[in-house]
Design a protein around this nucleic acid. Structure first.
Lengths: 335, 335
DNA sequence: AATTATTTTGTAATCGGTTTCATCTTTTCA
DNA sequence: TGAAAAGATGAAACCGATTACAAAATAATT
């Protein structure tokens, strides 16, 4: 039989109010009664029912995380950091793997509207709910894919600058025939990285060749396919900037299958620095995203929002880093 | 201002009971009133408060997933399948990344005791709560690492048979100097795979050399370190069975650093078949775990348990599969 | 010692749904 | 047509905590 606060109160010879106070505001209770209560709590093994409390306090103690694919290393690393921060702050995290389905996004978005969660972390480029009836935004933090809404707090890296850094690295090695394997056109991260790619080329007076720009979906398979397309070109690039490590890994795979040597025949640079990047052969040069820090900062910002405070800045940018490994080198002489 | 069921009832000109019925048991309500209610629901944008309902029904609609590391591809794939099944069944999943901390395990374990979740999926080898005061077990399903408790439902693969298959593959290629990079000694999966390793060797009359058995922790780094140890041996193995793909990837890394050719100089076989296994160079031969199916089946079993039914079998084993790729071959002549 | 201020505790209202039970309608069937 | 059965609806109890408010106990002040 399930024991409730009443049972504990009876056992301790106090009212349920006192039990509640002992558990959530011990300082309001006499040392003496407190110990009586705690004894009863331990004896009965009482665990407060969250719903009773949540109903009264209007706080769920939950946050939702909306991600397109938890299987993705980038997302997994971020959510791990989130979970840790959340637990430390006394929150539980509801996992929303949306598989890019808008319906699923809305499903999880509703949770925060219906009070099932106190805040929401969104890693997709859309708001997961209508703001139609909303008088004010719920506690929401956005990362990875920028949501087009000025009032939403964002934790990101400077994607354009990251791309510029990547391409300039290639240029500094002597490459001029630099292709890009980008993500889906409508994702903000791709938009910004593509802008960076073009800016870096322009700055170096390298003409932009649209045939060198292939669209993928950030996944391995699309990297494989994209590289196959690039290899069919009459004038092949000597270096490729991939907008994700997964696509870079796919691209390298295609290169290996076709007996190209990396980086001698073609340089590859990725983006993200997932853990497998340094385990490839050759080890992948890439732009490192601070995944842990991203996750932590997202949760910290959300925590602040849930306390009713506003963070100092609506948009917070964390530093990225160029990690040079083995997959990039100067182009072969004469290409 | 937050709108509740009363507001909707007023607007629709019915009682709150009718609104509730319309939403959760439409068949109890007249077509006519139903449409009146739905109209009011849509007009107000009413979202039922979960806690009110949960409090009354004693159902949270949540399940907890307790995993040692969500960053791990194996876990990520499984939880993804779980989330999908859960959502389809109307449940939300609470993520518990425990980082091998028993304290964190208990934290999440309590959720199911306190009613914050209706069921729990455990991927660690321990029960995440005391069964002291419990009259009966909560709805719990266990996978990946076997919990030592007869009444807990388990969804697994046959780890021993998997290991036997792996080692016999190596033996069939002509290897006799077969090392093992195993997981932590106290994990049941390692215990079973190690037993399989030994059985396969014994069956082929190959003596077991304890120096050939190195302990890792299933992670990449430990695979790197383990292979370094193996390379220091006077009589080096010609093949290594790694108890996880991650350790295999680490081991291959060490081999490459030391300019060994895989599989010519040494064959490597992994376990799991994570997505990166086929992206390594050479592509990793491995024992494929049906990760998706494992996740789905776990959730299905839990669903049954939460409905108060018992699954046909306490232990359900799913089929594994040997996937031969490029990292295994016959040993070089004369070694 | 009497009065006032402060601290502790208890009573009861409250959060927002669901569900039992009674009542009122409608349908079925003799 | 009338009685019985079935169906739809509403009133109110209920789930289990928190907390405003009142009352009681204790401490402080004069």
């Amino acid at each position: 039989m399930k024991i409730g606060i009443k049972d504990v109160a009876k056992k301790a010879g106090v009212s349920s109010a006192t039990v509640s106070r002992t558990l959530s505001n011990p300082e309001l209770v006499t040392e003496n009664t407190r110990s009586k209560v705690m004894e009863a709590v331990n004896a009965t093994g009482y665990k407060p029912n969250r719903f009773g409390a949540s109903l009264r306090t209007q706080k769920s103690g939950n946050v939702v995380v909306v991600m397109p694919d938890i299987t993705n290393q980038v997302n997994a690393s971020i959510i791990r950091a989130i979970e840790r921060e959340a637990m430390d702050a006394g929150y539980s995290v509801l996992l929303g793997d949306t598989q890019n389905s808008e319906e699923r996004e809305r499903h999880y978005g509703e949770m925060v509207l219906s009070g099932q969660a106190d805040g929401i972390l969104v890693f997709t480029p859309r708001l997961p709910f209508e703001l139609g009836n909303l008088t004010k935004l719920p506690a929401i933090v956005n990362s990875c894919e920028e949501i087009d809404h000025a009032d939403v707090c964002k934790v990101t890296i400077d994607n354009e600058a990251g791309a510029i850094t990547a391409v300039e690295h290639l240029i500094s090695l002597g490459h001029t025939k630099i292709a890009a394997i980008k993500g889906p056109s409508l994702t903000p991260s791709t938009r910004d990285r593509l802008a960076g790619y073009k800016k870096a080329l322009q700055k170096a007076d390298i003409p932009i060749d649209e045939k060198y720009i292939i669209t993928g979906d950030y996944g391995v398979e699309s990297g494989i396919a994209a590289m196959e397309k690039l290899l069919k070109l009459k004038s092949r690039p000597t270096a490729v900037f991939c907008f994700s490590d997964d696509m870079a890994i796919g691209a390298m795979n295609t290169l290996r299958e076709n007996e190209y040597n990396i980086p001698q025949d073609m340089s590859i640079i990725g983006f993200d620095d997932i853990s497998y990047a340094s385990l490839m052969s050759p080890k992948l040069t890439t732009i490192k995203q601070p995944l842990e820090a991203l996750g932590r900062q997202c949760m910290k910002t959300l925590l602040k929002l849930m306390k009713g405070q506003q963070p100092e800045q609506k948009v917070m940018q964390l530093p990225f880093e160029l990690v040079v490994r083995q997959s990039t080198a100067a182009p072969k002489a004469g290409t």
